[in-house]
Design a protein around this nucleic acid. Structure first.
Lengths: 205, 205, 205, 205
DNA sequence: AATGAATGAGAGTTCATTCAT
DNA sequence: CATGAATGAACTCTCATTCAT
């Protein structure tokens, strides 16, 4: 029975689903995207190709599930922490730090998802733009309130996005490093960059 | 003639080589890395699979040529401009701007190369670290001379690298934008971020 | 299931394996070694290339199976008959006759195996030397016991081996002949050749 | 101009022909029959694929030339020596020894030719039968004159042929051995085998 | 006389997917 | 639920052969 049809998924179903998602992440991370065949993923999950494609009616659907799982976990994680922030400065710092901290918690899942999206045929330029928009709005509102200085919010948002996106592979390649240090430094870097210029002038005098 | 052999390449050789390199870039950019089969690339170049593999003895060799072509063009372009810079500030701005400007000139080539390297089996984590090193040294020397403030040079270098790496896909997705504006803004952003604290306010972060 | 994995082979497994081995022998024998592509073998077995490579993960593995199948059948056949022989003379006759009789039973399988080994990259010079050794020892022990006369055991062993190796193609080319006659004559030939010269003396008187 | 057309071959033509024949033998012997592509052979001969197929209009024609060259050299060599022999015994010994001695002189050429014929589509069962016939006649006439004893001439001829055919690979695999010893032993072996049963006493060659 | 260039046929192999059990 | 079996499409690569120069 295909997973899309009947209503509530069985416990076994959910378990198998999770196993396969985990296996896909593992194989993609360990052996590379190209080596990640359904067969290899299934075997990593301790089952067979036939079974894998019984649970997910196509490879793409499995990969979609990997992506969705990350987005769901991520959205929850982010939302909880972002609400606590008040000022634009605080929100920006929280945004950057929370994002990076989340990546530290799930570097393989994030990395695998990036590879899946990168190789997906569906345009993900849109997805990138979507991910940029709220960040740009945050920066703009900080400028309007006077907390931030003058800069192009789009470019700044893209820059922030870029380092967040690069973080997964960096954390995976250097698991021995002090990620928390990296996180704080990255946030600090952008906070300095968005500071109003006016603040600097008077101190210089 | 196998491309490995000695001797100067014929005119036809070079022409076909260039055609195939261009076609590979085109196909990867337009149809995606996975869709880029030798057959499709050859057809894009107006020739046949057999001919393509006559000129490049393997697909990997063709891809290697794509990468090499970019590195050669890029190295020349960068070297000329970086020499003109004097102070650390100037060097940093030049580094960022020149990099981005080069990408604006060859976004497809850069993007294709990124995909090739990303899918290559040879470790490119090393390559990334290598690309970071000179940048980190530039930042460090700026700190030692007092031009730059206090920050982690590694994290900052990685951030700069990240936005440069992200630029190709952004420029490709938005060819209508004013890239020169993006470039100046990106450079300005990092220049603000590396400014000495003494110049700025009292309570950065 | 990849054939390397553990566990007992299914009934279907064994059946298909056997079908493909038989088909490989058939195609090699009928159409020649070079014409024996996986596709053609598969079609001969009434299946498809994909299926063939599902059961044997490479062409080489299929060929290896052809060779192994012959060796197993042959070893059993030979062992049973060789044990019965007592004297060196008897052993030699049995060795030659049994070898040739086995080839008469499976000329195509033997011929195909010879072609496979001959075209294999793995050194089969070694294999030939290995096949010679026991025969040489048999001849030597016959000489030591005085049953055999003086001759170079190596050269004689190689000669015996040579006619045994040539028998498959001869039997295949002449299926109408009386193979049993050939077998007995061949054995008699070598028995005469190894006879001690001294035995003949009494007849001279 | 194709080699078949005009009358007398140029000196250059003959030289190139010989170079390519030698190269083919070399490549087949060193790298194996399967690895012997026209390209590789041409390069071994210090020329190009195009040139090779200018001189021999097909690969098969080149291989045919390898075979013919051997047969011509061999026929001359054999004929000279066989004429000297008188009795059937002498002829047989000469046949075996001369054959083997010729192989010792050209083991690579003989080996390459064997591989070519073995992989050729044209039936070479006929060729083998043809090669057997004169030998069988020699043995028969020896029997009729009473020089030889009773045995099946066909089987004996095949046996002699078999060891001669096996000699090339043996000599190639063991170039360090005393081939002359091998040759004399092989001849002696068969002479003992064809001896009349009654005669065996005093003069076993 | 020589050869670089081009090409199409065919090889082995991988893989997502379908299906009967 | 699960899976072994089967398959066809697509891929990279090899190679003998043709041809223009």
């Amino acid at each position: 029975m295909r997973s899309k049809e009947s209503g509530a998924p069985t416990r076994t179903q959910r378990a198998r689903h999770q196993d396969l998602i985990t296996a896909a992440i593992q194989v993609i991370t360990r052996d590379g995207y190209r080596a990640a065949s359904v067969d290899r993923i299934a075997r990593e999950a301790g089952t067979s190709k036939g079974t894998a494609l019984y649970h997910f009616s196509s490879k793409e659907e499995l990969y979609q599930a990997v992506v969705s799982a990350l987005f769901e976990t991520g959205a929850t994680y982010m939302a909880e922490r972002l609400l606590a922030a008040d000022t634009a400065t605080d929100k920006l710092r929280t945004y950057i730090e929370t994002n990076l901290r989340f990546i530290t918690l799930h570097p393989a899942h994030v990395g695998a998802t990036q590879q899946i999206l990168m190789n997906s045929d569906t345009v993900h330029a849109v997805q990138l733009d979507d991910a940029i928009a709220p960040l740009r709005r945050l920066l703009q509102s900080g400028q309007e309130s006077g907390e931030f200085g003058e800069f192009d919010p789009e470019v700044t948002a893209l820059s922030i996005r870029a380092i967040v996106d690069g973080a997964a592979s960096y954390f995976l390649a250097h698991p021995e490093l002090d990620h928390e240090h990296y996180i704080r430094e990255a946030a600090a870097l952008f906070l300095r960059a968005v500071q109003p210029a006016s603040l600097t002038s008077k101190d210089a005098s």
